[in-house]
Amino acid sequence: MITLESTDAAGIEQQAADLDFTLPIEQTDAWAQYQNTVDGRRPWGAYVIKQDGRTVAFISLIDYETHGYHYLRSVHGPAWIDKPSRESEAEVRQALIKAVRGKDKSIAFLRIDFWDYEGTFPVLSTVPYNETVIVDLTGGDDEILTRMKKRGRRDVRKSLRESPAICTDETDQAIADFSEYYEVMVETAQRDGFSPAPMRDYVDMLSSLGSDHARVFAARIDGKVVAWSIVALNRDHAVYYYACMRTEVMRQLVPDKLLYTICCALGQRGCTQIDLMGIGNDFAPSLKSLNTFKTKFAEDTVQTSAGRDVPIKKGFYRALTMLQSIRRSLRHKENSGK
């Protein structure tokens, strides 16, 4: 039998630590406090999920207000201690629906991660993934390199020999003044066809999470920032959260050198793994452009649960999906007419 023990992000973090279980950064109290600084978001609550009295998972939920309605998001939650059975996951889904309905009548739907998609819907927005690359950071710099695919080892070694970039941890500099780093993100967005978040968003993330939970690594050529990454940390796990690069250095193996530098630096800090945050497949075809780079850093990819929507207000959610379908149809017609 599944039961939910109501608490907050700090509560699940303490109970996870008692079990020596590392939560995803998005399930921590530091993340909840960071989300509280973002307009339209606030920590909503959290649950310790138990099965027959034994703790099996944790979930921290953030209330998102958008377009006049509310939904709850839990990135990488529920965080299961062990991969759940289909039946257990379905029971947790029903328990969460009941709990949310009983506590907050304003919530339209949940957006949480599932292994089994039955009873859920594709997300209305964002791009979830169900496959990723996790790099083992244990054993030192040489071991990190040895465990890569052959082409990964080749490209990293070539970058160490030939790339003029100097790669270092620049967390303190980035927090003091992020403008030089943001210019690289703007150029990346223009090249790759997406809209960058406002600079304030990156600054708030760094300042709110603090250097214990967020680090900035940058590559410079002739003193100029040409690439950078933000890495999020919780205990001994790291996540490759944001990355960008100037077009002029795309052929100079700068990303290879920078990511290897990150892996080595994090390994020296005691991190045991870094999650490269998703690759493309049939579930997430728009991410396939990331595969060539990311997959060379580990021999195997890793399956993971993926973000899905769970309606709370079913009629309202149907209306949202219909509206989205109409918008997509109109965009398609507009693009076809060009």
Rank of each mutant, 00 (worst) to 15 (best):
E5S: 11
T7I: 00
E13H: 10
F21V: 13
D29V: 08
Q33G: 13
G40P: 14
W44M: 01
Y47I: 06
K50G: 00
D52Q: 14
R54Q: 15
F58H: 07
T66A: 12
T66F: 11
H70Q: 10
Y71H: 12
H76R: 15
G77C: 08
P78E: 00
A79Y: 12
K83T: 13
S88W: 03
E89A: 12
Q94G: 14
L96T: 02
L96Y: 00
K98N: 14
K98L: 12
G102W: 06
G102V: 08
K103Q: 15
F109R: 06
F109C: 09
L110F: 09
D113Y: 15
W115P: 01
D116R: 11
D116W: 07
E118Q: 15
T120A: 01
T120F: 00
L124S: 03
V127A: 10
V127E: 14
P128C: 02
E131D: 12
I134W: 01
G140S: 05
T146K: 15
R147E: 05
K149I: 05
R151A: 06
V156M: 05
R161F: 05
E162L: 07
S163T: 04
P164K: 07
A165D: 11
D172L: 06
A176M: 02
Y182D: 01
Y182F: 05
M185Y: 07
V186W: 07
G193L: 11
A197K: 14
D204I: 12
S208N: 01
A214F: 09
V216Q: 07
D222T: 11
I230P: 06
L233Y: 10
H237L: 01
V239D: 06
Y242W: 08
Y242T: 00
M245W: 05
D256F: 11
Y260F: 03
C264M: 08
A265I: 02
G270P: 09
C271Q: 14
T272P: 04
G280M: 01
G280A: 01
K288N: 08
K288D: 09
E299A: 15
T304C: 15
S305N: 13
I312F: 10
K313P: 08
K313T: 03
K314D: 13
T321Q: 15
I326D: 07
R327M: 04
R328K: 13
S329E: 09
R331H: 03
K333S: 05
N335I: 05
